[in-house]
Simulated assay, not measured.
Amino acid sequence: MDFLSSTPHFHIFTWVVGIILFLVAAVMANGTKGKKITHMIARLFYVLILISGVALFMKGMDYGRGAEYGFKFLLGLLTIGMMEMVLVRSAKGKKVTAFWIVFFVSLFATMYLGFKLPMGFEFF
């Protein structure tokens, strides 16, 4: 399981695919079989995101910045939660505007913090 925590590449791959699957499922028509299948595959990637994120979180404790990695972990959980809420509530025909806003804010905050921390890439 060293490939999960040796570099953040697997984690980045899982959240990129997870976000793409989420967006595809979000724009599909409600009640279709394709939307249900896409939603289930997206859920699988949510689990992979969490597993690889936990592995990176444990490795992040070695950097002495546990609070920042913990905050990023919580933001990531919030992001995944909002992705699921958007899909479930839209399938029920309920309003999802607030969930979309929280999703985008938490997604960008998580990405910023993830790239800023020592295991991230230097974009900023």
Rank of each mutant, 00 (worst) to 15 (best):
M1L: 10
M1W: 08
T7I: 10
T7N: 11
P8L: 14
P8D: 11
H9V: 11
H11V: 03
H11I: 07
F13T: 08
F13W: 12
T14C: 12
G18T: 02
I19E: 05
L21V: 06
V24I: 14
A26I: 09
V27T: 15
A29Q: 14
N30D: 13
G31K: 12
T32V: 14
K33R: 15
G34W: 10
K36D: 06
I37M: 13
I41F: 09
L44E: 07
L44F: 07
L44R: 01
L48E: 10
V54G: 01
L56A: 00
F57R: 01
G60Q: 00
D62T: 12
Y63A: 03
G66Y: 03
G66M: 04
Y69A: 00
G70M: 01
F71I: 09
F73D: 05
L75T: 01
T79R: 07
I80Q: 02
G81S: 08
M82E: 07
M85I: 07
M85N: 07
V86I: 15
R89C: 08
S90Y: 03
A91W: 05
K92N: 11
V96C: 08
A98P: 08
W100M: 10
V102I: 15
F104D: 10
F108K: 13
T110V: 01
T110P: 03
Y112Q: 08
L113W: 05
K116E: 04
L117K: 04
M119H: 04
G120W: 05
E122L: 15
F123Y: 05
F123N: 04
